[in-house]
Design a binder for these strands. Structure first.
Lengths: 204, 204
DNA sequence: CCCGAGTGAGAACGATCGTTCTCACTTGAG
DNA sequence: CTCAAGTGAGAACGATCGTTCTCACTCGGG
């Protein structure tokens, strides 16, 4: 077992602890116990707690992007890919330990004091935003639609976390369908909305 | 100057400090300095830091509700009241020290460990939700519209906080207009959309 | 005046945090 | 084998936290 394996073990344990309890609520001793590693090796892998936190967030960025991409790839059409975002969220919200978006949580807890963490959270959101904008451009809708869909996804995450109700993803999907179809109807006014309506009926 | 004045002074100072730096990042000593009060009196007003935090959140609940109500009352129609939410957010986002929704931040930082704070944050969101649902019922739209509009407002708050871009409120308003008008067109299909369209043009 | 209750300023306390150090032990090279 | 380098387990350190205590002082009622 080499250093990279140990790093990944620490990151996995830290991610779970930080996400479920908050960053400042989890000390290095607790992380050592959870990762099954000595404090000495922990500090030679990560010179400070802040390095653990940033590594955890960078790791989570990749996991989140991969998970989302997986859902999107399963959808055949650009419209379906956009709506797959909310299916991805729906499944996520149903997980037992769901506690909101880890980046929003990190920003809320540490963003004001630690600009590096604020930057990581911001970069995560902006890459999601770019992803949405690309798909919106593909279906030929106005760029503002990407903002609208992003707001729904963000709102669903915080609402599901606070209320504990996973149906926020379902509501976000409903609204997204309306916004997408309205945007498409505005850009292609000659085609009637029949296709969109049947598509909507199949999923909703 | 009686005890209530002191209490209010502490709450005001604590609110600013907690909101801009986070809860665990602000100690009681710092709060004492900011409030201009002795540690002794501080602890006889609030037996523990947790009491300060909950008092701050309860206070912020009232301030938030009053501010929103003010914006809503200025709008003549129920539709205008619903859209006033996003004007309220827009002005809020432009404040210098805006750092997202204080309740989401509190939930993110302390909600996992402190169930009392989680409950306050949840209650705040649900009272906002009820407020929206009442107005949606007034304009005769489907209840799901209230969920959609709430998601937009929530998403705007986190997006504006993370990206630092106040235009999230503007985008949320755009999307809200589309969703409201679509919902109204579905509930009253005999009236054409002209009224809604001109209203939209006046505001957007 | 006296006296007791309450106050401000801040030291002190115990807990906990992030981080480093100690020390006995392992291990691979010579 | 010997020895140097690295490790695990955990004590130790300094800082900081929330909270309490000390002590000199104020001040209103007798």
């Amino acid at each position: 077992m080499d250093n990279d394996d140990y790093r990944q073990r620490v990151i996995a344990a830290a991610d779970r602890l930080y996400y479920t309890k908050g960053f400042s609520a989890v000390g290095m001793d607790q992380l050592r116990d959870a990762a099954g590693i000595s404090l000495r090796r922990l500090y030679q892998l990560f010179p400070s707690k802040n390095d653990v936190v940033t590594a955890v967030l960078q790791n989570r960025r990749k996991i989140w992007a991969d998970g989302l991409t997986e859902y999107m790839d399963a959808a055949p059409t650009p419209r379906g890919k956009l709506l797959a975002v909310y299916d991805f969220l729906a499944d996520w919200f149903c997980e037992d330990d769901f506690r909101g978006c880890g980046f929003i949580n990190a920003f809320a807890e540490l963003g004001a004091v630690n600009s590096e963490i604020a930057a990581i959270a911001r970069e995560h959101k902006m890459s999601f935003q770019r992803h949405m904008a690309r798909l919106v451009a593909e279906i030929g809708a106005a760029p503002s639609l990407a903002h609208h869909l992003m707001l729904l996804a963000e709102g669903a995450q915080t609402t599901a976390a606070l209320t504990g109700d996973p149906s926020a993803a379902h509501h976000a999907r409903q609204a997204a369908e309306i916004l997408i179809d309205t945007a498409l109807a505005k850009e292609h006014p000659n085609t009637n909305g029949e296709d969109a309506e049947t598509h909507l009926a199949n999923h909703g």
